[in-house]
Simulated scan of single mutants.
Amino acid sequence: MLPSHGRYGYTPWPERARYAWPGRARLAVYLGVNLEHFAFGEGLGAELAPGANSGGGPQPDVLNYAWRDYGNRVGAWRLLELLDALALPATVLLNSALYDYAPALVAAHRARGDEIAGHGRTNSERQSMLDEGSERVLIAESTAAIARHEGVAPRGWLSPWIAESRVTPDLLAEAGYRYTLNWCMDDQPVWMATRAGPLLAIPYPQEVNDIPAVVARKDGADAFAAMVLSDFEERLEQVARDGIPQVMGIALHPYIIGQPYRLRALRGALSAIAARRGEVWITTAGGVLDHVLTLPEGSVA
């Protein structure tokens, strides 16, 4: 027998329950906006060009640090303008370090009623490298900061770099989290087993995601926007054909998608999605959780 995580079982796709989202929609769409802050001169970070993290030069890696910082200083504000223009909600995946570094940016998302979900302290670290006690502290510190500033604890979590230890789902459930975005194994929410009870895995994309698309595969702005729209249109056809509900996430990082030429391309794709509101449910990850909790037992795998 192969080693297994033991978190969920296998359910064939054709055998899934045919439940519906609000408005009798079969497709739910949400935007995951990653607000991330990085340490200067140390730690992890995506790279525009080969830098210190990939052996391209010593720290401080000014080029890549400044490129990422553009997201918080400019790109995120441009993305906010686009979301406001199209009346699109967002789930903000928040490094809690942003409360100290760019509090006005978090406040702008708060003012528009966006969901704030946990995304660690900073993307300069991976929680999978920590022992259980240290990982518990990381989750607790990030959670406490969000609860203190937002007046309510976050219900969802995305690990920095989607990095998990073997006990991360257990620690999240023990800390009061109701859903995780770490597992990209399905197009539907799936209940996961933890030592503290069930934790809902909500689909978070690793394909329709600007980091793997732009940074890893080197896709252009038009290619990424076309990917978003093609994913959406194909899913609409699938749910109309088989009646099996789906969740489509779109993962965005302001230092990438907030570059003007990429934002211009994205605008076309998001405008097309927004125009189909009557056919799809545009929501947040937390909204997906809320609806799942109203479904009859056994509806969700």
Rank of each mutant, 00 (worst) to 15 (best):
N209H: 15
A240W: 00
G120E: 07
I282T: 06
Q127G: 12
A226Y: 02
P169L: 07
L44S: 09
K218H: 13
P154D: 11
A201Q: 13
F38C: 10
Y99G: 01
H253M: 12
V167A: 13
L130C: 02
L88Y: 01
D231I: 00
A52D: 12
G133Q: 11
I250D: 04
L270E: 06
E47G: 03
G278V: 05
L48H: 14
A39H: 09
L171V: 02
I146N: 03
A39F: 08
D114Q: 02
D210Y: 01
S134Y: 00
M1L: 09
H291D: 06
Q59E: 12
G41V: 05
V74N: 02
P14G: 03
D131M: 02
R16P: 00
E135D: 03
V214P: 00
A39C: 04
H253E: 09
Y19Q: 07
A20N: 11
Y179G: 01
S54G: 07
F38I: 10
S96W: 02
A140V: 01
A107T: 04
G278C: 08
E81D: 15
Y8C: 12
R126D: 12
V239E: 14
H37Q: 11
N123G: 05
G278H: 08
G220R: 05
N95A: 12
Y99L: 11
G43Y: 06
A76D: 13
E141G: 00
A163L: 08
W67E: 10
S165W: 07
P296F: 05
R241F: 05
A52M: 05
D61V: 02
G120C: 12
M192L: 15
V239M: 12
F38E: 13
L295M: 10
P254S: 09
W21H: 09
R267D: 14
L252D: 07
P14Q: 06
A175Q: 09
R112D: 10
G32I: 00
A225T: 05
G57A: 06
G243Y: 04
S159D: 11
G249A: 11
R126Q: 15
L236G: 13
N53F: 05
I211N: 06
G32F: 00
L31N: 07
R276F: 01
G6T: 12
R26S: 15
E233M: 05
M185C: 08
G287C: 11
R78G: 02
R68D: 03
L158M: 10
L27W: 04
L82C: 06
G75F: 06
A46H: 14
L229H: 13
Y99S: 00
R166W: 12
R126F: 09
R178H: 12
H291L: 10
L199A: 13
G41N: 07
R264A: 15
I282H: 04
L80R: 14
E164M: 14
D219T: 00
H5W: 13
V190Y: 03
A25P: 08
L35V: 10
L252Q: 04
A85H: 02
N72P: 02
D242Q: 09
E81N: 11
V215I: 15
I139C: 04
R267Q: 15
Y101K: 14
I257E: 05
Q238G: 01
P212V: 04
A193S: 13
F224Q: 09
R136M: 03
E47R: 06
S142L: 13
G220Y: 03
R241K: 13
N53K: 06
P212T: 08
R18S: 11
S134D: 13
